[in-house]
């Protein structure tokens, strides 16, 4: 182990000393060296290099940007129909669309609304516990009443509502998750955040 480094060491040292001994001869040359690459020439090459680098980096960025918008998205559509309003029993929480679309359809005190099944604490999907009449998050124990208002655990705000309306063509309930209604901004009074059954 210890012997080999000693054997190899002299070489770099020798090279270094050669390089050093070669350098003192150079001061005579600089004029010639300058003549080979002029100041103007250097800058035009540097410009070419920079343009090339920028173009390559820009190309990579563009490709990356395009990657963010795939041709096909294997995601459920944000706007979907959940059946006629008569499907939803009064004072019940409908869990049929949680797995496919991530919303609870709640029929509560004559109002029908869609609660987005994402905990407002850190984004886990909460479960509906019928026996306890509450939504409960399995990750940190946040709890919400049937209407989505938070009351226990660490979550700072209520669940969000998705836009809900009646499709004029076939009378089905249409949920649009692209539009959200936040309680703390007073948006739950918005007529598109609920249906009056």
């Amino acid at each position: 182990m210890t012997e080999t480094p000693e054997e190899t060491k002299p070489e770099p040292a020798a090279q270094a000393s050669e390089a050093k001994s070669a350098q003192p001869a150079k001061p005579a040359k600089p004029a010639a060296a300058d003549a080979e690459v002029s100041r103007r020439g250097f800058f035009s090459w540097a410009a070419v290099a920079w343009v090339g680098f920028t173009a390559a980096a820009g190309g990579c960025l563009t490709a990356w940007g395009r990657f963010m918008f795939p041709n096909v998205l294997y995601e459920p559509p944000t706007s979907f129909k959940v059946g006629p309003p008569s499907d939803f029993a009064p004072d019940a929480v409908d869990e049929r669309f949680v797995e496919s679309n991530g919303v609870f359809i709640v029929n509560d005190q004559g109002q029908l609304y869609a609660l987005i099944a994402i905990c407002t604490h850190l984004g886990c999907p909460p479960n509906w516990l019928e026996a306890q009449n509450k939504f409960k998050c399995p990750c940190h124990g946040s709890g919400y009443y049937r209407n989505g208002i938070n009351f226990e655990g660490p979550t700072p705000r209520p669940l969000e509502r998705a836009a809900i309306s009646i499709d004029p063509d076939d009378g089905q309930v249409l949920v649009d998750k692209a539009q959200k209604f936040l309680w703390e901004r007073g948006q739950w009074d918005d007529p598109s955040s609920f249906l009056t059954a």
Binding site: V98, E99, S100, N101, G102, A117, C124, P125, N127, P138, C139, H140
Partner: peptide, 19 residues
């Protein structure tokens, strides 16, 4: 599945203090 979380959902053990 993005809409189903195991119950309880636990972080890796070394993050359970943070959880």
């Amino acid at each position: 599945n993005t809409s189903v979380a195991p119950n309880p959902s636990k972080a890796p053990w070394y993050f359970l203090g943070l959880q």
